[in-house]
Amino acid sequence: MSDRETSALPGAHFAGFVTVSEAGLRGMITLRGDLSSDAIAGALADVTGLDMPAQRCVNSAGDMAAAWMSPDELLLMLPYDQAGAMAQKLAQALAGEFATVANVSDARAVFTLQGAGVFDALAKICPVDFSEFDQGEIRRTRAAQVAAAVWMSGADQVTVVCFRSVAQYMFDLLSAAAAPGSEPALYT
């Protein structure tokens, strides 16, 4: 990686009742194909070492993770500078299969929410029952007026992904949801 690349909102940070931080560049690869097929699961395992995640789940190992996005779409997350080579390897492994690999590392923005009240903040913008949200689950949903995907990426930590063009909107939105004094005491 060189300084020619920048993430959507480098260094953006807000300290509310949870903290909101832009997570920087993250490698992402879209893999489309029948995720239930052995061929695709096999290629994924061979190339990344990751098992095919179950419906709406994230499997991770080390700095790599695979997220189930739809019955025929997987999102692979990995260090930014490894994405190009990994996409090529995957494409080669899937040659001859009806499968599509695309490097989408620049298409999105990633935010990290940290704190005991992460669901209290997210509940203000996502129509999701987080009391039934499990570690290892990814939920694609709506954050106010834009599409988002959220998952628990650690203790009291949630990762939120949106399209790059709405990164500023998402950051402002998350900051408003986490504003000090607005704790709703719903999940905490």
């Binding site: 419906q55 709406r56 739809s70 019955p71 129509p127 939920r139 694609r140 709506r142």
Partner: peptide, 12 residues
């Protein structure tokens, strides 16, 4: 039926 999520109308 494709992802198993039960959600409110605004997601659809």
């Amino acid at each position: 039926p494709c992802c198993g999520v039960t959600a409110e109308e605004t997601e659809f």
